[in-house]
């Protein structure tokens, strides 16, 4: 039972780390980034290749840097020029990017499943509540907590954080305040995509790497972001943990419905409050 809950926390924690980057971009640009899952996948694959020649940690760093760079490009050439237009256009463009990156990954790394080894330091087990629990999984929970904490502090106390919160609440007024919105937006989006890449690396040892992992995680991220409130970080945190637990328990008690429940939750939330559980704007 404890192990169940812990595994639920692992999955929930992972979902949170993945979704956070999406929330950042959504809060700022009010558009869902359909390429988010592909960026996650790219981070994992780039990390894997780097890991092959050095180690896990360098892999994560390289992945983060590459993805941050791509994020900057994304903001500069997609989000920013299209910000005054119908959001559908941006959605479609990010969707096109999803297709291109998916093909890129398949071309460079092939269609076969790959596995990422756990970093040696964390590859053991720890004794928890009388049972052995993989260290790496425990670390994922910790990292999720650290990210959540770090993000909260950053949002509350840094100037960029203030900007993000203000933009999420009222984009027009914030832009009119004379803040160099373009540069700050680019930084924030870059951080968001970097987080996507890092989350891919973190997920690497837990999941199997394949060209379809991007679409899978995109769905999951969407669910978390929507249920948590489009643009709300605390909401995403709660939603991620919730879905992590639901996932685990529903498989045991309601197997035929388990995969359907998160989507139904999403439907209910979107109808009841198009801005999600935690509030905010759509």
């Amino acid at each position: 039972m404890i192990v169940h809950i812990l595994n639920g926390l692992v999955y929930g924690g992972l979902l949170y780390i993945v979704a956070v980057g999406l929330v950042l971009v959504f809060g700022l640009r009010q558009v869902p980034n359909f390429a988010h899952g592909s960026l996650f996948m790219l981070g994992a694959y780039i990390g894997l290749s780097t890991l092959m020649v050095s180690n896990f940690w360098l892999g994560m760093l390289v992945g983060a840097l590459v993805l941050a760079f791509l994020g900057g490009l994304l903001d500069r050439f997609v989000f920013r020029p299209l910000q005054d237009e119908d959001h559908v256009v941006t959605m479609l463009v990010t969707f096109g990017i999803l297709l291109v990156v998916g093909d890129l990954v398949q071309t460079v790394w092939g269609k076969d499943f790959r596995s990422m080894p756990t970093p040696p330091i964390l590859s053991g087990t720890v004794e928890l509540f009388g049972r052995m629990f993989p260290t790496y999984r425990l670390m994922v929970i910790l990292v999720a907590a650290i990210v959540a904490l770090g993000l909260t502090l950053w949002l509350r106390y840094s100037r960029i954080g203030l900007f993000v919160r203000a933009s999420s609440a009222d984009p027009q007024t914030t832009a009119a305040q004379g803040v160099d919105t373009d540069s700050v937006s680019m930084i924030v989006v870059a951080v968001g995509t970097a987080l996507a890449g890092v989350s891919g690396m973190i997920a690497g040892p837990l999941l199997v790497l394949s060209p379809s992992m991007g679409s899978f995680i995109l769905m999951e991220s969407f669910i978390v972001v929507v249920v948590g409130g489009l643009g709300s970080f605390s909401g995403a945190f709660v939603a991620a943990l919730l879905i992590g637990q639901i996932n685990n328990f529903s498989v045991v008690y309601l197997p035929w419905m388990s995969t359907m429940i998160p989507f139904l939750l999403m439907v209910v939330v979107l109808i009841w409050r198009p801005t999600g559980l935690a509030g905010g704007r759509a």
Binding site: V31, V88, V226, L230, M266, L270, I271, P274, T275, A282
Partner: peptide, 9 residues
């Protein structure tokens, strides 16, 4: 439901 949310719905 507004556009973006509708798409996700």
């Amino acid at each position: 439901v507004p556009g973006t949310a509708f798409a996700m719905l």
